[in-house]
Design a protein around this nucleic acid. Structure first.
Lengths: 239, 239
DNA sequence: ACCTGAACACCGTTCAAGT
DNA sequence: ACCTGAACACCGTTCAAGT
């Protein structure tokens, strides 16, 4: 009588699958950043040779497409499904809540925006997400034409992020033109970039973080989002 | 009596300089795309060994920083200098014109947005550009606080581009979920993504290009820009 | 001062081969 | 069906060396 083999023996690793590969990819990027997400490094995490991955994903582009799908699926979970959005309130409130929910997922994966922006085609869960936003527009009374403009106006904000231009890397060293520098540098700054310098002096007061660090990303995101949603609502009710 | 040596003899190449390296980098990216912009390939274009570049730029990051400076300098040329913007008209009109000028430069270098978005610090010409936008806000009567919000709300639009999410690559092949496909696929699409499908059906009519290609980028850019500028103007005149 | 050759430590990806 | 070893054609970058 044969001894029943345990499904997961100690030392016997679970077989690879596309899902396991994608999960491991997200975890690796979460843990060590996007630059650590290489085929070789990912294989190592999975206890496998790099070339084994190619049995489950066509290539690295396909891997990244899959990772995007994972993130949007996480948004879908966060929202509790995209289907049942009967708007029994302001369309603005519904849209705002959905997008801010997406944002909380994005904030858990700070590397994700960079991946989204390199994608060139979209998968099923991204389509479901965009479809749900379109549904909110429609139930709010938008024509498809205006809803289409609205999607473009939102841009990446629809997915809960704005790719900040020139945001300082957290582990960045002091730059030479750092305004915390000596007075001569400050004076040179003020002469070349008067408005910028004065703004820095005025707004940076509130926050101990220097120069570029004073911005509250969440506040700025919501400001921009509300500006666009209000503008669209105005266009809607004008017509 | 010694014969005067011609400054540029045939075959005797001009010595490298940071400026020549950066110019060559922009030209290479223009000609063959961002992925062709490698240190080795760039050196080849300059008729030099790869390692010679490191005498003129610290590393590839510094090269890309320099490329960004080149592009913004080109904007500065397009605008005719950033200093003399006495607003003798609507601030909205001035801002709109400046940003659309920046956009015409960006459209000459379609790879540039991707480079801008990977930058982590900013150089002098970028600071001059942002300073000039801030100047327009200020001369329009903005507080620094509102101007600061305004800059964030504009985001990359301030530089004349929006990084389109999922825009199809021009040389992309037909995807499996292509809605030009057979009727069964169309029906499946309609069931899964009803709003998306209906929008496509309605708006795509106007343009022979299929699905994702019907959007007029310039129109959409201006729509979003105007929405934001109008919203900011309203906030300004409300207070 | 400016450029080079050789080498290092990485990439993604192929292909034929193993079990 | 699933995984691997060896190899290929690339990267950015170092360092000591050439002129």
């Amino acid at each position: 009588m044969a001894i029943r083999i345990e499904p997961s023996q100690p030392g016997a690793r679970a077989p690879l699958s596309q899902d396991r590969v994608l999960h491991a990819a997200v975890e690796l990027a979460d843990r060590e950043g996007l630059s650590a997400l290489t085929m070789r490094r990912l294989a190592e995490d999975l206890g496998v040779e790099a070339m084994s991955l190619y049995y489950h994903v066509a290539n690295k582009e396909a891997l990244l497409d899959g990772v995007v799908e994972m993130i949007v699926a996480e948004i879908e979970g966060q929202v509790g499904g995209f289907d049942e959005d009967l708007v029994d309130e302001d369309w603005v409130a519904t849209m705002r809540r959905r997008i801010l929910d997406a944002r909380t997922v994005m904030l858990r994966h700070p590397w994700a925006p960079a991946v989204f922006e390199t994608r060139t085609s979209i998968g099923a869960s991204v389509m479901r997400y965009f479809n749900s936003l379109l549904g909110i527009f429609r139930q709010g009374g938008f024509s498809y034409d205006l809803a289409h403009h609205g999607m473009h106006a939102l841009g990446s904000r629809a997915l809960g992020f704005t790719q900040e231009l020139f945001n300082p890397d957290p582990n960045g060293e002091e730059s030479d033109s750092d305004p915390d520098g000596n007075e001569a540098e400050m004076a040179a700054m003020a002469a070349q970039f008067p408005y910028l310098t004065e703004m820095l002096g005025e707004v940076a007061h509130d926050d101990p973080d220097s120069t570029l660090g004073w911005c509250d990303d969440q506040t700025e995101f919501e400001f921009g989002l509300d500006l666009i949603l209000d503008g669209l609502d105005r266009l809607l009710t004008d017509d």
